[in-house]
């Protein structure tokens, strides 16, 4: 598994993209799927930058794992941050500190993630938000 630890700011998005490209370089997926994954990574990463440590910034850890043998490859990407408990799938309780002006931008982004990825799971563990997305690479696009 490849990991990137980075300060969650908008400016660092290009570094995240570079990391993602390197991690998925060796895997054999159609470019459409790779773009879908890139889109989901951007949406989730941007949520962390906007939401997790607001109004300050903090660290985000992104892990990319390509699993499986020759025929079936699956990409598992995890996002870890130590910000306020935030579940984009709303399993946890929402943040109470958020003022009316801090409107989360994520609604549509999370919708995209849910509809394009094969699995989306959230966990709050040891004071960390852990969001994991998975995409099968061999199936025909959903």
């Amino acid at each position: 598994m490849k990991e990137l630890k980075i300060e969650a700011t908008i400016e660092n998005l290009s570094k995240v993209f570079k990391f993602l490209q390197e991690s998925l370089d060796t895997c054999d997926a159609p470019s459409k799927v790779k773009r879908q994954i890139k889109l989901c990574v951007e949406e989730i990463y941007m949520n962390i930058t906007h939401y997790a440590y607001n109004p300050e910034t903090g660290m985000a850890k992104i892990g990319v794992d390509v699993i499986g043998g020759e025929n079936q490859e699956r990409v598992v990407i995890s996002f870890v941050d130590e910000g306020k408990p935030y579940d984009p799938l709303a399993k946890q309780d929402p943040d109470l500190e958020l003022s009316l002006d801090d409107r989360p931008i994520g609604g549509l982004g999370i919708y995209l993630v849910k509809t394009t990825m094969d699995s989306v799971a959230y966990e709050h563990k040891d004071g960390q938000n852990v969001l994991t997305i998975e995409k099968d690479l061999d199936k025909e696009n959903k």
């Binding site: 773009r35 890139k38 949406e43 941007m46 931008i105 549509l108 982004g109």
Partner: peptide, 10 residues
């Protein structure tokens, strides 16, 4: 255009 995310849609 090769790629657009939700920010672009907005």
């Amino acid at each position: 255009l090769e790629y657009i995310s939700s920010a672009g849609l907005r």
